[in-house]
C-alpha cells in the first residue's frame, strides 16, 4: 500500500470519527452505560451482591407479572407480560389495518388534508392527556362511547369501562388505537404517494379491478412502510406507561398492569430498584427481539 493511500485511509477514519464522536459519546454516556448499569443491577441484591437470576425468578413469579390463577379465557388480571402481549395482539393489527384503510380512502379524496389532520390530532396529544381522555370517553356519566352504547341498547356496556376488570384493558386498547392510528395513516399516506401511477394504469389495462390492484400493487409496494409501522408500534406497545398511569393506574385489581408501569411501581412505590431493573432488563430483551427482527427483515428486503 502506498503512503498516499494509507494517509487517505487514515483521513477517512478521522472524518468518520470526527463527525460521529459527539453523538456516539452522548449515546455511550447517557444511554448505553446507564442501560448496562441497569442490567447489572438486575443481577444484584440491595447490598450489591451478585444473586444470579433470583430477581428474575421473583419478578416472574409475582402475580402482577404472570397471574396463572386467572389466565385467558378467565377474567383479568392476567399479569403485565400477558397484558402487554394482548395489547400487541389487538392494538397492532387495528392500528396497522385502520391506518392503511384510512390512508387509501383519503388518498386524493376531497378534504383529505383536513380529515388527516383531525385523525392525526390523537398522535400529537400528550399520552398523559390521552389517558385522561380515554378514562372519560368510557366513563358512565361523562363518556361519549358509553352514551352511544346505551343509546343503541347495549346497556351492559354503558357503565364505566375502566372500573371493571373485564372492560378496562379493552377500553385502554381501543382508546390508544384512536391515539396511535394517525401515525400509521400518515406513514401509509406518504408510502402511497411513492407508488408510480403507471402500475395501476397498466394493471387496469390488463383488467385488474380495484381490489386486485390494492392486493397485488398497493400492499406489496407498502411493505417497507409496514415494517417500520409494525416495529415502531410494537416498541411503543412494549414501553406503554403514561396512558395506563393516568387512566387506571394499572387497575382495577391489576387488570391493566403493564411492564413499564410495574417497573415504575417497583422503583418509586416499593423502592425496590433491583426488581425495577429486572423488569427493565426483560423489556430490553423483548425490545431486542423486535429490533433484531426489524433489522433482519429490512436487510433481507434490501
Amino acid at each position: 500500500m502506498s503512503a498516499w493511500r494509507w494517509w487517505r485511509q487514515i483521513g477517512r477514519w478521522g472524518s468518520f470519527l470526527g463527525f460521529t464522536a459527539p453523538a456516539l459519546l452522548l449515546i455511550l454516556f447517557l444511554i448505553i452505560l446507564p442501560a448496562l448499569q441497569t442490567i447489572v443491577l438486575s443481577f444484584t441484591d440491595r447490598q450489591g451482591n451478585f444473586v444470579g437470576l433470583q430477581n428474575f425468578a421473583q419478578v416472574l413469579s409475582d402475580p402482577d407479572t404472570f397471574n396463572l390463577t386467572s389466565f385467558p379465557p378467565g377474567p383479568p388480571p392476567w399479569g403485565s407480560i400477558v397484558h402487554n402481549a394482548v395489547w400487541i395482539m389487538l392494538h397492532l393489527p387495528l392500528t396497522v389495518g385502520l391506518g392503511l384503510i384510512l390512508a387509501v380512502l383519503l388518498d386524493r379524496a376531497r378534504g383529505a388534508t383536513f380529515l388527516k389532520s383531525i385523525i392525526f390530532l390523537g398522535m400529537v396529544t400528550p399520552m398523559i392527556v390521552g389517558g385522561v381522555i380515554i378514562r372519560f370517553l368510557f366513563d358512565e356519566n361523562a363518556g361519549i362511547v358509553t352514551a352511544v352504547l346505551r343509546a343503541v341498547g347495549l346497556t351492559e356496556l354503558g357503565r364505566s369501562w375502566t372500573a371493571y376488570p373485564e372492560t378496562a384493558l379493552p377500553a385502554l386498547i381501543l382508546g390508544s388505537v384512536w391515539l396511535w392510528v394517525g401515525f400509521s395513516m400518515i406513514l401509509y399516506s406518504a408510502g402511497l404517494a411513492t407508488i408510480p401511477r403507471d402500475y395501476y394504469e397498466a394493471a387496469a389495462v390488463d383488467g385488474a379491478g380495484p381490489f386486485q390492484q390494492f392486493w397485488y400493487i398497493t400492499i406489496p409496494s407498502l411493505r417497507p412502510v409496514t415494517m417500520v409501522i409494525v416495529a415502531m408500534t410494537i416498541l411503543w406497545e412494549l414501553k406503554l406507561f403514561d396512558i395506563v398511569y393516568t387512566a387506571t393506574l394499572g387497575g382495577p385489581g391489576g387488570a391493566t398492569m403493564v411492564l413499564a408501569l410495574q417497573m415504575y411501581f417497583y422503583a418509586f412505590r416499593a423502592l425496590e430498584f433491583q426488581r425495577a431493573a429486572t423488569v427493565a432488563t426483560l423489556l430490553t430483551l423483548f425490545t431486542l427481539i423486535v429490533g433484531l427482527w426489524f433489522v433482519r427483515t429490512m436487510r433481507s428486503s434490501e
Partner: peptide, 12 residues
C-alpha cells in the same frame, strides 16, 4: 433500539 427500552416513557 435496545437502549431506548431501558429509558422509561415520560411520567407525569
Amino acid at each position: 433500539l435496545v437502549a431506548s427500552a431501558c429509558v422509561p416513557a415520560a411520567t407525569p
